[in-house]
Simulated assay, not measured.
Amino acid sequence: MPSSRGSRPKHLPSSPFKPAAEPVVEVFEVDDRVTHDLHGLGRVVRVDSHAVTVDFGSQTVRVNHPYSKMHHL
Rank of each mutant, 00 (worst) to 15 (best):
G57P: 00
Y67H: 15
P9L: 03
P13C: 07
D55I: 06
R43S: 04
V44D: 08
D48A: 08
E29R: 11
T60A: 06
T60C: 08
K10P: 03
E29P: 04
V27K: 08
T53F: 05
S4R: 00
G6T: 14
V30W: 11
L38C: 08
T35D: 05
E29V: 09
H71S: 14
V34L: 11
M70G: 02
F28W: 12
R46G: 03
R8D: 01
E29Y: 07
E22N: 11
G40P: 04
N64L: 15
P66C: 03
P66A: 08
V61Y: 04
D55A: 10
A20Q: 08
H65E: 14
S4A: 06
G6Y: 15
S58F: 13
F17E: 00
V63C: 02
D31M: 12
K10G: 02
V34E: 02
A20S: 08
D31Q: 09
D31N: 15
Q59F: 06
V34P: 01
P66R: 08
V34G: 01
R5V: 00
T53P: 01
S7H: 07
K10E: 05
V24Y: 11
D55F: 07
L38A: 09
T53E: 14
P23A: 15
D31S: 14
H65K: 13
E26I: 10
S7Y: 05
S7P: 00
P66Q: 06
H65P: 00
V27P: 00
V44I: 06
D48M: 07
L73M: 12
F56P: 00
H11I: 13
G57Q: 04
R5A: 03
G6R: 07
V24E: 14
G6D: 14
R33V: 15
S4C: 05
N64Q: 12
G40F: 09
H11P: 03
K69T: 04
K10Y: 02
F56A: 02
H36I: 10
E26R: 09
L73K: 07
H72Q: 13
R43E: 01
H50C: 02
R62P: 00
A20E: 09
L12G: 09
S68T: 13
H36N: 12
S4M: 01
V44M: 11
V44N: 06
H36A: 08
P19L: 02
S4V: 01
H71C: 09
S3N: 04
D48I: 03
